[in-house]
Amino acid sequence: MPNNTPAAEAGVAYSRAVVQVGVSSRNRRRVRIEERVVRAFLLMCALLGVLTTFAIVFILITESLGFFEKVSLKEFLTDTVWTPTFANKSFGVLPLVTGTLLTSLIAMLLAGPVGMLIAVYLSEYASPRVRRIVKPTLEVLAGIPTVVYGYFALTFLTPLLQRFIPGLEGFNALSAGLVMGIMILPTIASLSEDALYAVPNSLRYASLALGATRFQTVWGVVVPAAMSGVSASFLLGVSRAVGETMIVAIAAGQQPNFTFNPLVAVETMTAYIVRITMGDTPHGSLEYRTIFAVGLLLFLITLALNLTSEAIRQRYKGARV
């Protein structure tokens, strides 16, 4: 038997272990106790994740309850003015929701089609050489910190767009949304490509054998077959955009305007949380509690998006096998 088989290696490792712990009955008891202690510790590590989820839900709900004692749920969800820090307070969250929706929508209008096209191109058309260059580049785009994207939106894209769009404010939803689109582009492109790549070749061959062109095969057969994976990636992209903070905090401005005009400043839910926590809002005040109410709403929206995306992906995985 050669000396480097797995079994031999394990044997060497085990004899090292034995040298350390010995095999006397006293030590054997110690080993058993150690085993139990370690097991308990590892279980606790795994449980910390569950605990984190509970803690998030718990603090968001308890602090929000304090808020909803003073402000009715109806006012929160239907009023269109959000001025918790003004003398004349109003607690309608809709401006923050529309701000979030608007920037996310702009991001998806860029990242959706572009990400999809990149995925189709890479999976169905590109040569291996092009793939080798493009995929790591997309990974680099995905690894850039969002504060850097924020800087780029504010100091490059906004001045650039102002040359073509005269009414564009210095802070606006448009350039924040577009840069956010670039940020989520890699997520959508790479997950959609995985879905397209998983479509069995037999489908492509069958379509081509029937006389369809490559274009017809891709858009008539491959893309529909991968649709569930592609839509899961889109939902995940929306979820990222909704939860993204720094780009919008820097480039979209911090004014809760109830508008769908992409040329003016808006404030998203995330940007509002950052603005309030950076100021000196006293702990326990109603203004302080607003960030948890907004946080709860944000958490619920992203959770719904993530769960739907995951459910679609699971079903699609089952259908493949």
Binding site: A46, L47, G49, V50, T52, T53, A55, I56, I59, L60, E63, L236, S239, V242, G243, E244, T245, T270, I273, V274, T277, I291, F292, G295, L298, F299, T302, L303, L305, N306, L307, E310
Partner: peptide, 22 residues
């Protein structure tokens, strides 16, 4: 535990900030 970890990965980072704050 597994589903929980998948979901935690999708929670926006600013929410973790609120968790840490509290």
């Amino acid at each position: 535990v597994e589903i929980n970890i998948t979901n935690l990965a999708g929670v926006p980072s600013v929410i973790y900030g609120l968790l840490g704050l509290q």
